[in-house]
Amino acid sequence: MDMTTPLVEMREISIAFGGIKAVDHASVDLHAGEVVGLLGHNGAGKSTLIKILSGAYRADAGEIRIAGEPVAISSPRDAKRHGIETIYQTLALADNVDAAANIFLGRELLTAWGTLDDSAMEAETRKVMGRLNPHFRRFKEPVKALSGGQRQSVAIARAIYFNARVLIMDEPTAALGPAETKQVADLILELKKQGIGIFLISHDLHDVFDLADRVSVMKNGKVVGSAHVRDVTQDEVLGMIISGKCPPGAVAGPGALRS
């Protein structure tokens, strides 16, 4: 592990819904320019943990540090202020408005008179979409009319347009075909090069091993362990996910099976 201050540290985070501990004393961290894969079954708590970082949920206990500084994140607005952007599995797009309205939702560009500057927003949208998806043409249509891949690129554009430092991608390729998945992978590598830290939540072990520097595995709300991908095999990680058994190459967490 490198010794620099991590970009994001989540320490001993806990949250319970109606008595069920969805996340139980979980700790993960992320460095600048690093991709950390978060793995686990459905209901393991990985999405919940990440929603605490993105401000959708508020943790019952624990601490979040950004670049070493403890921060309070109690709303998506707070998270965005700290440069944390999220691409949700559901994409979280307002289907009835166009790409520009979605990208700038909550952060609209205004004219000098305080009205919406739709032309400026469309122009910026054309720029950022030109980078992500050069074939994109349907700037005037509600995003409902777009294909899955196009919708995905709108969601990604919204996350990267505002100079994110930390990007959370929740199952970014679940709804995509092979070619589009490849494009997302290329994008992740490019963003990583720019020094953005990325939390990648995925079911797909191959994806994660291709893209991530480290993995953290969760089970029943607890962290089983974390490891550099070069120190563990895919089978060992699978074992962590299924049985909670922590291999020698990984640092065991509170959720590791005790033998």
């Binding site: 307002a94 909550g106 609209e108 919204r158």
Partner: peptide, 22 residues
């Protein structure tokens, strides 16, 4: 033309998305 109206319509399109967008 106003932000308020944009929010009203985005809430109608997807309340959760509007909330997650701040």
């Amino acid at each position: 033309r106003l932000r308020f109206g944009r929010y009203v319509f985005s809430i109608g399109g997807n309340p959760e998305a509007a909330q997650l967008s701040g």
